[in-house]
Amino acid sequence: MSAPRELSNRWQERFAFYDTYGIPGSTPAARDAYRALPFGQKIMLNSNFLAFLFGPIYFFVKGMWRKGLTLLGMGLAVGVVITVADLSDTWSRLAGFGFAGLALSTANYAYYLHVAKNSSSWNLFEGFGRAR
């Protein structure tokens, strides 16, 4: 399915890649196509800096509230464990950056699945992994 017309050019480029190849690295063809892209295109395809900055809020705003709640729940669970274990602030910062990185790297494909494939999954990692 192609990207809807109301999406920006940047989203349309992402959707075109995902329509053709899926997630970069999921198949040999996807890996080769990804490697052929310029560095800026690779960053644009795999990273979403608004998701990095705003985490679950970004997912909520984009209509992916289930995935946003999953990310929020995972973060709260890890925060409780860090608090109960009385770990240092370093661990809480590492966990915060880890969850921000998770949002950064999953948001684009999650949005593609939400818009193009009408996904309503709670799974942040939906579609990730090697294709069979």
Rank of each mutant, 00 (worst) to 15 (best):
L71D: 08
A107S: 05
F52R: 11
W11Q: 13
Y109R: 03
T27C: 04
E13W: 10
R93H: 11
G55S: 13
L87K: 04
P24W: 01
A100H: 07
Y18D: 00
A29L: 12
A100I: 08
A51K: 00
W91L: 08
Y109S: 02
L102D: 04
E6C: 09
E126R: 13
G75F: 10
M1I: 12
F59S: 04
T106P: 04
L87C: 02
A30Q: 03
T70L: 00
A29Q: 15
L37R: 04
T20A: 03
L50N: 08
V61T: 11
S88T: 15
E6T: 10
Y34I: 06
R14H: 09
S105H: 03
D86C: 05
R5G: 13
L72I: 06
Q41F: 06
V78T: 08
A85M: 07
L94P: 07
Y21E: 10
F97I: 14
T20C: 00
L87R: 02
V78R: 04
P24M: 02
F49T: 01
T106E: 02
S120L: 10
I43C: 06
T90C: 11
R93P: 06
A85E: 09
G40C: 05
F128I: 07
S119P: 12
F60C: 09
Y111N: 02
F54S: 12
D89M: 09
G63H: 05
T90D: 14
F15L: 10
V80E: 01
H114R: 13
G98Y: 12
Y34P: 13
S121R: 00
L37K: 02
A131Q: 14
Y21G: 12
Y112K: 03
R35K: 15
M44Y: 05
N118E: 14
F128N: 03
L102F: 15
S105V: 06
G63M: 04
P38D: 09
H114D: 08
F125A: 11
G98N: 07
R132K: 12
K62T: 06
F52G: 07
F49D: 00
V115I: 15
A51Y: 00
A16K: 14
L45V: 11
A51T: 03
I43E: 05
F15Q: 08
I57H: 09
S92N: 11
F49W: 04
A103M: 05
S105A: 06
L7D: 02
P38V: 02
T70R: 01
L71K: 14
R5D: 15
A110K: 02
M44V: 08
L113N: 13
L69P: 00
D19P: 01
H114F: 15
N46S: 14
G73H: 03
N118K: 14
F99A: 09
M64F: 07
V81C: 05
R14V: 02
L124S: 01
N123M: 14
W11P: 01
W122P: 01
L45Y: 04
A36H: 10
R35P: 05
L104A: 10
A3R: 00
S92H: 09
V84D: 01
G101I: 09
I57Y: 15
F97G: 12
S119K: 12
S88G: 15
D19I: 01
